[in-house]
Design a protein around this nucleic acid. Structure first.
Length: 583
RNA sequence: GGUCAUGUAGUUCAGCUGGUUAGAAUGCCGGCCUGUCACGCCGGAGGUCGCGGGUUCGAGUCCCGUCGUGACCGCCA
């Protein structure tokens, strides 16, 4: 070993020890007669000291060290005459007797500090330098701890980790597949898994009744701050369970992570809201429960005064912004602009101010009396000093817009604190979604999700009404996990494929192996997958999952450090029987 | 596929209704400095204003195109 200790561990108790440290030059302070150097490694920073009087030669050598040089330094641990209470190692320093430069460094293009001066683009290009900084280092350490605690909890519950293949069969359902050409099978392709879905079900058929895997998944869709083309799931499946058993087991996992990593205990069970409920109350299937401001439907109450915007609306919804009655014209205009953005899509915003002095002011004073509005305010549960914000229009788009407005108000009022966590389960998702463009149903979760027993009858009569045994785990407005109880009977699965518009032949060609397996004693089973990157970014308080991934891709799915994807040699293409069409 | 924002010293940014030699901070280099820890002080170097075209007597600034980056919509079972 080059070193006897790390740069984070020496304390006053180690005084007079002769030690050797290795690390990178964080910074040096040359005072003329003496020079201080902060030496950094993964574990911390330790101050080295050189003195002209003690050893002029060595001190001059130290003055020539540049930022990010890699050195090894041997010396004696001594108590500082000026201690630095801000550093864990601030009581000591190393009086260096021997110095060795292991490697020099170019001056890095941005400063390796907690608050770097580098922009995103540059830091992505030099990711290996960015990873030297504490914020990213701490995120990766957190990620490691969470993976470790996940395995620890699930292992204690008798789950076993099984690896599943990465080169699998492509299927047209769901997200676009990443595709891999097969050299030995010209003209044929593998796909990278969007998730190990079918394999974990096959493991259940095989009798491994508690499976888990922390596994990479791939989806060739456009990116977002919380979406990468390759991402990591905590993938799980269990046999002989009902929905209730899954929720209990994995509520346990989430609790274990919060307890062991953040020391947070939740006293109450996680709330469970149905899909229908969260849409009515929050206009969103992943509601942020850190604050209330639930929707109040006014559709029945607010009509019939000759205000055409409301009279013609299929849905009228309100939220109450507590204590905001004094919002200025400018602030209200900002909110109106916000809801009118194309991404939000409302046509306008109606407000009612309930003054603390009992007065009522509204943007629809022309049509409604003060009594009308006080009655509406009472319906909405508003009190003097509150501001009521109302959107009207078609039901679904208006609820969606009101949801955006609710979140915006939550931000403005500081109700979405990063240190507060409000998990919940959303249950009873619809089984199917109608798509007008292709004129067919799609599975909302995936085609293996089982319908609620009570709703199975609707398969033939009214498929849109069927609720699924599907559930999401949502924390602070982030969908961190989701799963379902699967279909384990061949006949029902066949019927499901039929409802989705598959012919028997198509179903057989794409999922024949699964259908076959179901003929050999498939146990009832179900599972869940957590978005590990999202979970870590939530714990880390980061807005983007890129900050918890060592080497992420950018907006356009490029690795700007490696400059990838890239073209490949004609030889390679030929070998793969692929011709590239240049447009 | 679409909308919006953005691109100026190594870096982060400023640069007004178009007008002399494009500024600041930080980093870098040199000098001074024996208890600093974001050390301090003095000095210096450093620019194809992303790229291409246009308008104009004159463009970092206005217009068009293009490329990069970021956020969002569509998309993501």
């Amino acid at each position: 070993m080059y070193r006897t200790h790390t740069c984070g561990e020496l304390r006053l108790a180690d005084q007079e020890k002769n030690v050797t440290l290795c690390g990178w030059i964080q910074r040096s302070r040359d005072l003329g007669g003496m020079t201080f150097i902060d030496l950094r490694d993964r574990y911390g920073v330790t101050q080295l000291v050189f003195n002209m009087d003690t050893d002029a030669l060595l001190c001059n050598e130290a003055r020539r060290l540049g930022r990010e040089f890699v050195i090894t330094a041997e010396g004696r641990v001594t108590e500082r005459s000026n201690k630095n209470p801000k550093m864990p190692t601030g009581d000591i320093e190393i009086l260096v007797s021997r110095l060795n430069i292991l490697n020099t460094s170019l001056t890095p293009p941005f400063t390796i500090e907690d608050e770097s001066d580098g922009g995103d683009e540059l830091r992505m290009k030099y990711r290996y330098l960015d990873l030297r900084r504490n914020p990213l280092k701490n995120n990766l350490l957190l990620r490691h701890q969470m993976a470790y605690e996940t395995r620890s909890y699930l292992n204690s519950q008798r789950f076993i980790e099984v690896e599943t293949p990465v080169l699998i069969k492509s299927t047209p359902e769901g997200a676009r597949d990443f595709v891999v050409p097969s050299r030995v099978n010209p003209g044929q392709f593998y796909a990278l898994p969007q998730s190990p879905q079918t394999f974990k079900q096959l493991l259940m058929v095989a009798g491994y009744d508690r499976y888990m895997q922390i596994v990479k998944c791939f989806r060739d869709e456009d990116l977002r701050a919380d979406r990468q083309p390759e991402f990591t799931q905590i993938d799980c499946e269990m046999s002989f369970v009902h929905q209730e058993d899954i929720l209990a087991m994995f509520e346990g996992l989430v609790r274990h992570l919060f307890q062991s990593i953040k020391g947070i205990a939740f006293n109450e069970p996680f709330p469970r809201l149905t899909y229908a409920e969260v849409l009515e109350k929050y206009g969103n299937d992943k509601p942020d429960l850190r604050f209330g401001m639930e929707f109040v439907e006014m559709t029945g109450k607010a009509k019939g005064r000759g205000f055409s915007v409301l009279d013609s609306a299929a849905y009228i919804g309100a939220i109450v912004a507590p204590g905001c009655s004094e919002y200025s014209r400018k602030q209200l205009d900002e909110l109106t602009e916000f809801v009118k953005k194309p991404q939000v899509g409302a046509k306008g915003l109606i407000y009612i101010r309930l003054g603390t002095d009992g007065t009522v002011k509204s943007s629809m004073d022309k049509f409604y009396t003060a009594e009308d509005m006080l009655e509406m305010a009472a319906t909405a549960g508003a009190v003097p000093g509150d501001l009521i914000l109302i959107l009207a229009g078609d039901r679904i788009p208006t609820q969606k817009a009101l949801s955006e407005l609710r979140l915006e108000m939550g931000n403005r009022l500081g109700l979405r604190s990063k240190g507060v966590f409000r998990p919940l389960w959303v249950v009873d998702f619809p089984l199917l979604e109608w798509d007008g463009a292709t004129d067919r149903f799609y599975a909302m979760h995936h085609p293996f999700t089982s319908p609620k027993a009570a709703d199975i009858g609707y398969l033939d009569t009214d498929p849109a009404r069927i609720r699924a045994n599907a559930y999401d785990c949502v924390i602070n407005g982030v969908e961190v996990g989701g799963g379902s109880i699967r279909i384990h009977e061949e006949q029902l699965q066949k019927k499901m494929f039929k409802t989705l518009g598959f012919t028997d032949e198509e179903a057989e060609r794409q999922f024949g192996f699964l259908m076959s397996a179901f003929r050999y004693g498939a146990p009832p089973h179900g599972g869940i997958a957590f978005g590990f990157d999202r979970l870590v970014s939530l714990f880390a308080g980061e807005d983007s999952i890129r900050d918890v991934i060592a080497f992420p891709k950018n907006n356009a799915a490029r690795d700007v450090m490696a400059d990838c994807p890239s073209e490949i040699a004609d030889e390679q293409l030929k070998e793969l029987s692929i011709r590239v069409q240049k447009s």
